[in-house]
């Protein structure tokens, strides 16, 4: 297992380097320029100077090499400096956002907590909703419950979050003035009431995303359960005189979880990716909102770095999913 992991990680390095180049070129070739953000009242000479100050006038490969150096050397060095008080960076420039002129990693660091709490909670809530629905739908296939579950899952799949989000706002913030529509990032949870406040402001974005997540996961759960439900070993368990609970929750569920767990693991990078639309709608300053803001402002260093981090996460979580599969299913062994 260890050699398998190491081999996969080593293989990932050239892949990721290649991906980084592709992302860089794609981001760079995409139409638009940071110029378009500068108002027309700024004269062309000044615009030109501003672009030069950003380094955006350099040829693409020069910027790519610089970015590589910043990403793989300056940023880690900066991190080490921060931990041990060393001075490895020695005044070299970190990756700076063109839009805010602050280091991209500082921005990411500021945003990860919100994304993890909101999107992460939504993912967990989604899983928590999806599991029982998936299990019960499969257990009572074609029952009324299953039909309703199917319908809800279909709605969850097909209704875009900007629609469900706006609907939630109108119902829970405008008609029933219960929940805030704008996420307050400065809220520090120190006591019971601020904790409640945090729950209230998380409620809507979490529910919107949880619904979407639950739809997908409950379907996976259901089909995986159904597949196992008809297996002989389930009949064996019944023949042993095990209670239905044990049969379903121990025998069927545990085997059905194997593919579902991997699907869930593969979905984790998307938590880090944040939810572009939902975050934006509810003012959650997560990674998704950062990405869309950066795209709008043609903030290339930000877009590039975020896109690359997602690529790394996807590669890593693919590996984790594979390893999990091996751990969960005794039939699979990696050498």
């Amino acid at each position: 297992m260890l050699t398998f992991t190491l081999r996969r990680l080593l293989l990932a390095i050239p892949t990721l380097l290649f991906i980084s180049l592709i992302i860089f070129l794609l981001v760079d070739l995409a139409p638009g320029s940071p110029m378009s953000e500068i108002p027309l009242t700024v004269p062309p000479e000044v615009r030109k100077k501003m672009i030069e100050a950003l380094g955006a006038d350099q040829p693409v490969f020069v910027r790519y090499i610089l970015w590589l150096r910043q990403f793989f050397w300056v940023e880690p060095a900066n991190l080490i400096d921060g931990w041990f008080g060393t001075n490895l960076v020695g005044g070299e420039q970190r990756i700076l956002s063109w839009q805010s002129r602050s280091p991209v990693f500082t921005v990411i660091g500021q945003r990860i907590p919100q994304t993890l709490t909101v999107i992460g909670t939504a993912y967990l809530v989604g899983i928590a909703i999806a599991m029982p629905i998936g299990i019960y739908s499969a257990y009572r296939q074609y029952s009324v419950f299953d039909q309703i579950g199917t319908l809800i899952a279909m709605i969850g799949f097909s209704v875009p979050t900007f629609f469900s989000g706006t609907l939630f706002i109108i119902v829970f913030a405008v008609w029933l003035p219960w929940l805030p529509t704008k996420y307050d990032t400065t809220l520090a949870v120190t006591d019971w009431s601020s904790f409640l406040q945090q729950l209230r402001q998380m409620a809507m974005p979490v529910m919107v995303l949880a619904l979407a997540n639950a739809a997908a996961i409950s379907r996976y759960m259901r089909s995986s359960m159904l597949e196992n439900m008809g297996q002989d070993y389930v009949r064996t368990a019944r023949a042993k005189g095990m209670t239905e609970r044990v049969v379903v929750l121990k025998h069927v569920l545990r085997n059905s979880l194997i593919p579902v767990v991997t699907v869930i693991a593969l979905g984790i990078p998307s938590i880090f990716g944040g939810a572009i639309i939902t975050e934006n709608l509810f003012g959650v300053n997560g990674i998704g909102a950062a990405l869309i803001g950066a795209i709008h402002a043609n903030d290339l260093p930000m877009v590039q770095t975020l896109a690359f981090i997602f690529a790394v996460l996807i590669v890593v979580f693919n590996l984790i999913a594979d390893i999990l599969y091996g751990l969960l299913d005794p039939r699979i062994r990696y050498e």
Partner: peptide, 10 residues
């Protein structure tokens, strides 16, 4: 035209 192209000055 996409505004970032239209105003992009490329």
């Amino acid at each position: 035209i996409d505004p970032s192209v239209f105003f992009g000055g490329d």
